[in-house]
């Protein structure tokens, strides 16, 4: 918003005040995320800038908290750092285990959410779809219903999932399958929203053209439709992955000690004794989210270019 030429002095003053306010709000949004980065290199176990850090003395900074992420939970952290040390890290370090669990659970729940969600979005964006509004409302509701209600429901349900129909098939509590199913459910609304939004811009005459040239429906989907909507599908998948990667309440309720994820470890860390090691995890997570954000932004522009919309 440029200042119009007819602005009087009062309006000029207001305009600069307005810009200042906006700057402060942007600062409010971004400062908390950036402030943890330098603090995670603190040489002291404090959560504030030390004298040495402020004078940019190298002694004030260290990698000790990142080191702790690797060594915490190891069997023999104090031996020479050779191949054996690293395999100890890989097998025993608490945060490494949590990262592995987060990636495994995130990966499978993303696959489930993306495949089922994309299929459903294809159906939902057809004009013939019966009860579209109601079904859409049901499919989006995992995003709206408070997570504590979902987690409580799953807590009871997982203790005897087949009990509803009078069968016995074991428990889903403390299993990877249980957590993956829960996280897939939570990720589905994001896939539906992004993929249906992409499909709005899809020219249906392209698939009719493919069909008239003799392509089967599945061939039409994979050769014509999917390449065009792929950016939307991928960003939906990324949203689903982030949802799982950041989810803690369902994990608290239904996961066992085998399925500890990064958020679960952070939750413990924040609740019990918050140590700067949390900040080093946080810094790594922020860097990951910057990478994901950049990917989604690129995909969005690509999608707009494909569809012939000029980037906004």
């Amino acid at each position: 918003m440029a200042l119009p030429a007819y602005a009087d002095p009062l309006e000029r003053i207001w305009y600069y005040t307005y810009l200042t306010i906006c700057t402060l709000i942007f600062l409010f949004l971004i400062a908390p995320i950036l402030i943890i980065m330098p603090l995670s290199f603190n040489a002291e176990p404090y959560f504030t800038f030390t004298e040495k850090m402020l004078t940019l003395d190298p002694d004030g900074y260290s990698l000790r908290w990142y080191d702790l992420l690797l060594t915490f939970g190891m069997q023999a952290p104090d031996v020479a750092r050779d191949g054996g040390w690293w395999s100890d890290v890989w097998r025993n370090a608490t945060w490494v285990q949590a990262a592995k669990n987060s990636v495994i659970i995130g990966f499978w729940s993303t696959i489930v959410a993306t495949v089922l969600g994309t299929l459903a979005a294809l159906g939902l964006s057809r004009n013939e779809m019966p009860y579209r509004r109601l079904i859409m409302a049901i499919l989006i509701s995992p995003m709206i219903v408070p997570i504590i209600i979902i987690a409580t429901g799953l807590f009871f349900f997982y203790s005897s999932p087949c009990g509803v129909v009078g069968l016995d098939c074991g428990r889903l509590t403390s299993t990877y399958t249980g957590v993956v199913l829960a996280h897939a459910t939570l990720g589905i609304p994001f896939v539906i929203i992004t993929v249906t939004a992409t499909l709005i811009g899809f020219d249906q005459s392209l698939s009719r053209a493919a069909a008239s040239l003799g392509a089967s429906p599945s061939r039409t989907f994979f050769k014509v439709m999917l390449p065009l909507i792929l950016p939307g599908v991928v960003s939906g998948a990324l949203f689903a992955f982030v949802t799982s990667f950041d989810e803690v309440v369902a994990v608290l309720f239904i996961a066992g000690p085998e399925q500890q994820t990064i958020p679960r470890q952070m939750w413990n860390g924040i609740r019990e004794a918050i140590s700067p090691a949390i900040l080093s995890v946080a810094t790594i997570l922020v860097i990951i989210s910057i990478a994901l954000l950049a990917t989604v932004e690129l995909l969005r522009r690509r999608s707009e270019r494909i569809r012939g919309v000029t980037p906004q």
Partner: peptide
């Protein structure tokens, strides 16, 4: 896009 727990812990800090 940043983890909720990350944002909460930075506010604690």
């Amino acid at each position: 896009w940043t983890s909720l727990l990350v944002r909460t812990s930075s506010w604690i800090v």
